[in-house]
């Protein structure tokens, strides 16, 4: 099945339609649940951006960016306050996914891989300064942080060590999430895809 790219001019619509308005909370919910599932199964990835991916694919980059932003704000206000600042990263992810999807970069398994790498770079570039400011460069994931520790011990610049720490985690996570989103999106009923894409 091929996903037809959305018309370019409509990609950046900012009017919050009633469909998008109910899609965003659902996307945030999917983020939460995917993250909880990943933690429950002890997966080495977060999966916490799955809903953001789907929102961007269904309703465009703006919907994805808002989903990502609200996701982190709500997460911050309920569970882990520091995660609020990573809202910026989530906005970046939402926009990247939306733009890539609108330009047909989610249309085949091979293209999804390229998309995943681009999204991982976006995510790591935005997250690294935040990691340095709040956590001295760490990410909080054991094996990424051990890499960080090794690099810092060998006098690598903190920025480089922190970026590497974040990027290796991001690449694995975003590849997994991108393929999950790609696969789930193809299973969605057509009426649903039409409903959220329609500019009503």
């Amino acid at each position: 099945m091929k996903t037809e790219p959305i018309h370019r001019t409509s990609m950046w619509k900012f009017k919050l339609s009633a469909a998008t308005m109910t899609l965003i909370p659902a996307a945030v919910g999917i983020n939460y649940v995917a993250k909880a599932l990943a933690e429950g199964l002890k997966l080495p990835v977060w999966l916490g951006s799955l809903g953001t991916f789907l929102a961007s694919m269904l309703a465009g980059p703006v919907a994805g960016a808002i989903s990502g932003f609200i996701n982190n704000v709500i997460y911050g206000l309920t569970l882990s306050p520091i995660s609020t600042v990573y809202a910026i990263t989530s906005i970046g992810i939402g926009i990247a996914v939306g733009v890539l999807h609108a330009n047909g970069w989610f249309s085949s398994a091979r293209r999804v891989f390229v998309s995943a790498i681009i999204i991982a770079i976006v995510s790591a570039v935005i997250s690294t300064p935040l990691n340095v400011i709040f956590w001295g460069g760490q990410t909080g994931i054991a094996w990424g942080d051990s890499l960080f520790a090794v690099m810092v011990a060998n006098h690598a610049p903190v920025w480089l060590a922190s970026f590497t720490d974040e990027f290796v985690l991001d690449i694995l996570d975003k590849v997994c999430v991108a393929y999950l989103a790609f696969f789930i999106y193809r299973q969605l009923p057509q009426r649903m895809v039409h409903f959220f894409r329609d500019d009503k």
């Binding site: 899609l23 659902a26 649940v33 995917a34 997966l43 080495p44 969605l188 009923p189 409903f195």
Partner: peptide, 27 residues
Amino acid sequence: LIQKLKSVLPVLIPLVIKTLDQSMARS
């Protein structure tokens, strides 16, 4: 990891569809 990810799908897909369906109804 691939096996684990695949095991997530039977839970995630119905959940995502149900959630989005609910969003449509709500909208």
